[in-house]
Nucleic acid binder design. Structure first.
Lengths: 328, 328
DNA sequence: ATGAAAGCGCTAACAG
DNA sequence: CTGTTAGCGCTTTCAT
């Protein structure tokens, strides 16, 4: 069923039908009502592909993340999805699997689909952003979030790694820890680097005993923690985990070693709030939720869109706030 | 940059350019090479929207799931994504949030986008499938998976709830349990019903003592388990969880109550294999992975697609196999 | 208030 | 092997 079909039904033209459905004020009321009713009754659904081709706009917001199945991105996507629905956009998600070739493939896909905007969290070591910025540039906004390029020439929303890390460490600090272990991923992303540096800065400022370890798998994590907890003179009594995944590995170690927390060892994590509640007692954490970042991305997008129209588009960066949870 | 632009560059027609790029055998080699090279160099990307309008085909496989952030769907999506990439399809995911209105919105969206196929796991209590089947019907295949309509008139891939449940219970049975608790969701889905019935059938057949409880939240789960474990004459010594979420709640109870497993209570779960490894010792489980279902969906789709061409399309249903993991 | 017509970028049937 | 042409379904300008 197309506009054509409806037009025939009323012995009128395609334009009139189109106008009845979209720009009501230009069609005689009586006719308009009849057309709308008929369209509704027949379940007419305008072909998006045709509309998009004509309008050169899709109302699709393309999102690229390394993995869909990650607590942080999940919360980001859930929130963005909700916003999009309210605002009459469609969210389309593709994952890069941290593969920069796949990332590029996804980018071109979105370009060819004429998406209205691209929100992207870069794959590790991605250098695609230079090509990409050129590609979309003046046509559609590209907003980088979470893992962002190291340049000021783009729109980006970074995670405030330093603030979140300090918030968590301060929480541990209140309970006068003797020796803090920081557990970090061992990939070379800005996130890991920032959190690691903030960790050591904090340790230094507070004149604490502390050690940051970088682990690449559960086994590695276990090995390093065993070393620290059972083969050292000084036993740590506080742990900071920079992510959910690391928290899981750490908790496996804790349970295996039958260490009591928070009594023998105090634990805090950066998290989007799901995993820490899988354990009893619940783990303290600083909420680094994707929700806020999604809201910021969308707000940023609307802002830029207007700017693009006014030709004032200019690189800017925003940082979200963080909150502590499950505190004792 | 469009075909037009390239055509001008070589003083030739749009068709020749199009053919050079898509149907090489119809263009003189020398010209073809030059055109392809030029297109590559200039980073030409054919407009998908135009192609789709013309071909009435999008190469997008639309997927609707209740939630993206669910271990089972994650594995399904990850696997399907991989397949799609290999086969030159794009996977587009929308979530219904178990809201049948949002589900319907998503369905119409996919319809209007002319997707090549729709894979859908129904929202709880959805009755949209009757309208939907009519909508897509002969045009595109609709494949229902996991939560499927209770009719034989559609293409569907069900989970083999009975087989998976029996596999898990048999594993418990080997260790001669005195009293098995089965923990089930309390939504009225076919999955819950099937697993619950299988549970009781098994208990009966083996003449075991057993009780199935249905819980709707962590608190409820705790309350009911406390009752069974601490306020009853007979204490259960084996637990069967029908899903990951229930396993998490159960483990919270176990840890809180300081029950030892597998010594004091043996635990097994149906799972897609992530959550059971969050605990130490790891929990035994029967793998109900989304991966296999994704493969089956895609294979089914290709099959139906050919059938549709041959006008032999006929409702069929397939069931996947399951495997046990983490066994002791 | 309405219709005719152009055209978004592409493919494919047809003619040569 | 190549160009011309029609048209996918829709929006929008320009007449009337």
């Amino acid at each position: 069923m197309t506009l054509q079909d409806i037009a025939k039904q009323f012995n009128t033209s395609i334009s009139t039908v189109s106008r009845s459905l979209n720009a009501p004020y230009h069609v005689k009321n009586s006719l308009r009502y009849k057309i709308k009713e008929y369209a509704l009754e027949m379940g007419f659904m305008p072909n998006l592909v045709a509309t998009n081709l004509r309008k050169k706009q899709t109302n699709i917001i393309g999102v690229i993340v390394p993995f869909i199945s990650n607590n942080f991105y999940e919360s980001f996507l859930a929130c963005l999805d909700e916003i999009c629905q309210k605002e009459n956009y469609y969210m389309m998600v593709l994952q890069s699997l941290n593969d920069i070739n796949k990332e590029w493939l996804n980018i071109t896909m979105f370009k060819r689909l004429n998406v209205s905007a691209l929100f992207i969290c870069l794959a590790n070591n991605s250098h695609n952003y230079s090509k990409m910025s050129a590609l979309f540039a003046s046509q559609f906004p590209v907003i980088y979030f979470d893992k962002v390029p190291n340049t000021n020439q783009v729109f980006k929303i970074e995670s405030s790694d330093r603030i979140a890390t300090e918030l968590a460490l301060n929480q541990l600090f209140k309970k006068r820890p003797r020796y803090i272990v920081g557990i970090f991923g061992n990939d070379n992303t800005s996130i890991v680097r920032n959190r690691l540096v903030s960790f050591y800065d904090f340790i230094k400022t507070k004149s604490l005993q502390g050690k940051g370890i970088q682990v690449n798998c559960e086994e590695d994590c276990k090995r390093q923690l065993q070393q620290l907890f059972f083969f050292n003179k000084d036993t740590p009594n506080a742990i900071f985990c920079m992510s959910d995944e690391l928290l899981i590995w750490t908790m496996k170690f804790i349970q295996r070693s039958q260490l009591k927390y928070p009594k023998e060892v105090d634990i805090i994590s950066l998290s989007n709030g799901i995993i820490p509640n899988y354990f009893f007692p619940e783990i303290e954490y600083v909420l680094t939720s994707g929700n806020e970042m999604a809201s910021l991305c969308y707000a940023f997008f609307k802002d830029i869109k207007n700017d693009l129209v006014n030709k004032n588009g200019e690189a800017r960066s925003i940082k979200p706030k963080y909150f502590k949870k499950n505190l004792r």
